[in-house]
Each structure stands twice: as structure tokens, then as C-alpha cells.
């Protein structure tokens, strides 16, 4: 689901409450596309409650107006990167990590993706670990929120989505579609079929690829996974493939096809 757009008046109230102005791309997405819902990682957090989700408590009044110190043009930060916040931050027991940022999504465990709202990187998207002394923040290549979100949409729809959430948005990630089609290792092809099928959007091109694997892959475990993934949200156009899979040489594939058709 994608939450309904946020009225401009509520965005303004949020900005006045915290003494900031949201980066224009994120602001226009909120007011015209939606607030929270389908997106990278576990989905976009709502502007209203991301602080409860991430921190379990409301943020301090000065949290968003305090600059996030890092800049994507600086050299890559080292393991002691958080000293950039200054000694007062390190000595403050109540200080939360990552001032000047809003959490956009969780990528599992303590891994989060943030939007910088104050500081030299304002408008940029950055991957972080809430255990701030474990991993240094890593800026994505995207110039702003809309580029980040659209890249996820493109990668998802075109089958570049993969299972590991912390690497799903790297530019250099090999397309899952190509792995399913071309990899010689059946275990890799199965991972690719699973990754493709997990995407929230299955475009006709991806359905066609999964369908080809379901009836044509030489390895039964790959055919079975492709059938299961197609069968999670089948469309009428998938029936032909699923019916053909009922006569597969492997009983496991036939069983998966039967369950998909019965579902």
C-alpha cells in the first residue's frame, strides 16, 4: 500500500515544529504521491511516526535542525566517523544518532536509510547502521529522494531486485533476470528466481522470464521455485505455464503447480 498524500498544511506544521524545511523532492512526493508505504527495504516510513519506529520515542525538538555533518564530496568516512558530531554529542547520554536526518526505511535489523534534511548533504539519501560505531554511513549515488525512489521502482520492475536488502540498491548489482537466464549454477538461478518473485511488482517481462524458467529450466529446483513465485500472485496469463508444469517430470514441480493453481 501507498499512504495517501499528506496535505500541505500538515507538512508545513511539521516543518514549523522542528524549524526545518523538507528537501523539495521529498516534500513534493509527500504532498502529491503519498506518505509512507511501498518502497525500498521494508517500505517508506510515514513522516508522522518514523521516529517512534526507529527510536521508540519522539525525537528531540532540535534533532532535525542540527546539521548532519558528513558530505558525499568528503573522503569516505572511517570507523571513527562519528567524532564529526563533536565531543558534546559523544558525552550526551540522551543524544540519538544521526541528527539532521529523517528515516526513510529500514533494511533489516539496525540498518536504515535516511534522508538528510539539515547539513551539507541536505537532500541526499544515506545508508546507515543505528549501531553507529559499527558501520560508517554510506551515501547512495542518487542525487536526491526522487532519483533514489525511481531507481528502486526501475530495479524492481525490471527484475534487478534481489533478496539481500542491504545490497539491493547498489548500481553495480547484476540483474537478477540475467542470472536466472544465463547462470550455469542452478543454485544461483534459483536464488535469482526467488529474488525476482519477491519483488512487489511483477512486470509482464518478469512474468515471462519466470514462466520460461518454470517450464524450461533444466534443474527441477529452479522450475519449482519459478512455479512457486509465479503462483504467489498469479494472473490469468500465467495459467498456461502452471498447467504445463502439472506434467513436469519432477513430482516436486507438479506439486508446486497444483498448489499454485488451487490457490
Amino acid at each position: 500500500l501507498l499512504g495517501p498524500p499528506m496535505p500541505e498544511s500538515r507538512v508545513v506544521a511539521f516543518e514549523e515544529q522542528y524549524g526545518i524545511r523538507l528537501p523539495p523532492c521529498y516534500r513534493s512526493f509527500l504532498t502529491t504521491i503519498g506518505n509512507g508505504g511501498i518502497g525500498p527495504g521494508a517500505g517508506l516510513l510515514h513522516l508522522d511516526d518514523w521516529d517512534y519506529v526507529v527510536l521508540g520515542a519522539p525525537i528531540r525538538p532540535d534533532h532535525l535542525s542540527t546539521p548532519f555533518p558528513l558530505s558525499p564530496t568528503d573522503p569516505a568516512p572511517g570507523p571513527d566517523w562519528y567524532h564529526a558530531f563533536g565531543p558534546a554529542w559523544l558525552d550526551d547520554d540522551d543524544a540519538e544518532p544521526y541528527p539532521g536526518t529523517i528515516a526513510l526505511t529500514t533494511r533489516g535489523c539496525s540498518l536504515y536509510t535516511l534522508l538528510v534534511v539539515t547539513g551539507p548533504a541536505r537532500g541526499r539519501v544515506v545508508d546507515v547502521n543505528l549501531e553507529f560505531d559499527v558501520d560508517a554511513p554510506s551515501f547512495t549515488h542518487d542525487t536526491d529522494f526522487l532519483d533514489w525512489y525511481e531507481r528502486w521502482l526501475d530495479q524492481t520492475g525490471n527484475g534487478m531486485h534481489s533478496a539481500p536488502p542491504d545490497v539491493a540498491l547498489r548500481d553495480d548489482e547484476p540483474p537478477m533476470a540475467a542470472i536466472l537466464r544465463d547462470a550455469s549454477d542452478p543454485a544461483l538461478r534459483e536464488v535469482a528466481a526467488r529474488g525476482l518473485g519477491r519483488a512487489p511488482i511483477l512486470t509482464p517481462a518478469v512474468r515471462s522470464l519466470l514462466g520460461a524458467a518454470a517450464v524450461g529450466d533444466p534443474a527441477p529446483e529452479v522450475r519449482r521455485t519459478a512455479v512457486i513465485m509465479l503462483g504467489r500472485r498469479p494472473t490469468p496469463s500465467d495459467d498456461d505455464v502452471l498447467v504445463r508444469a502439472l506434467t513436469d517430470a519432477s513430482a516436486d514441480v507438479r506439486e508446486a503447480a497444483l498448489q499454485a493453481l488451487a490457490g
Binding site: 501507498l2 513534493s28 512526493f29 504521491i33 532519483d147
Partner: peptide, 18 residues
């Protein structure tokens, strides 16, 4: 904004699934 319109169009299949 052209990018917002493009994103809305790309999100359309998601809405179709609901």
C-alpha cells in the same frame, strides 16, 4: 514535475494489484 509524473505512472501497476 516530470519525474513525479513518471513515478506515479510506474506505481500504477502496484495499485492495479490491490
Amino acid at each position: 514535475d516530470a519525474r513525479l509524473r513518471r513515478i506515479a505512472a510506474k506505481l500504477a501497476p502496484v495499485r492495479d494489484l490491490l
